[in-house]
């Protein structure tokens, strides 16, 4: 199904009110992995908002992406509790192992890397998130195993 049709279906599943904006954006990103720029117009029309208002909301929240991510997204926790357990070393390792910076995707399109500030796993850090799974006590070796597994699982 083309993106436009998916977006229309998801918009139609919500009431046409401004407070449905975040739920609609979540629904779109959950299904497509990102919020395509063309969705802005469709949402604005449905909710009787200006495109600027919708764009302003999309760009305000770190969670929403306006370009397609890699096939897997790894979010590394950068917050204090994970720093206390060595997340800076893990971060350096991850950036080197993937060869990308934050908000970038590996050349093979496999993995995107994003920073995150706290996953609520603060007694068992350093933590990262892949999809809806949170993984604790991650060191360089564990990161490498995870990455190898991710690449194996990918189509």
């Amino acid at each position: 199904m083309p993106h436009a049709a998916i977006v229309q279906r998801l918009i139609a599943a919500h009431p046409p009110r401004q407070d449905a904006l975040l739920p609609i954006l979540h629904a779109i990103q959950d299904e497509l992995g990102w919020v395509p720029p063309k969705a802005t117009t469709a949402i604005a029309q449905a909710l009787n908002l200006s495109r600027a208002e919708v764009h302003g909301v999309i760009s305000f929240y770190h969670h929403f992406r306006t370009s397609p991510p890699g096939r897997q997204v790894i979010q590394l926790c950068r917050a204090e509790a994970c720093q206390a357990r060595g997340s800076e070393a893990l971060e350096a390792h991850a950036l080197a192992a993937l060869g990308v910076g934050y908000h970038q995707t590996t050349a093979d399109g496999a993995v995107s890397l994003e920073p995150v500030y706290c996953l609520g796993n603060c007694a068992c850090g350093p933590s990262l998130r892949v999809g809806d799974q949170i993984i604790g006590r991650v060191d360089a070796a564990r990161f490498d195993r995870l990455l190898a597994n991710l690449r194996e699982e990918l189509p």
């Binding site: 917050a79 204090e80 509790a81 994970c82 500030y117 706290c118 609520g120 796993n121 603060c122 007694a123």
Partner: peptide, 11 residues
Amino acid sequence: DEGDSGTFSDR
């Protein structure tokens, strides 16, 4: 919206 690092009681 428990964003503080080091907190997890809400969760």
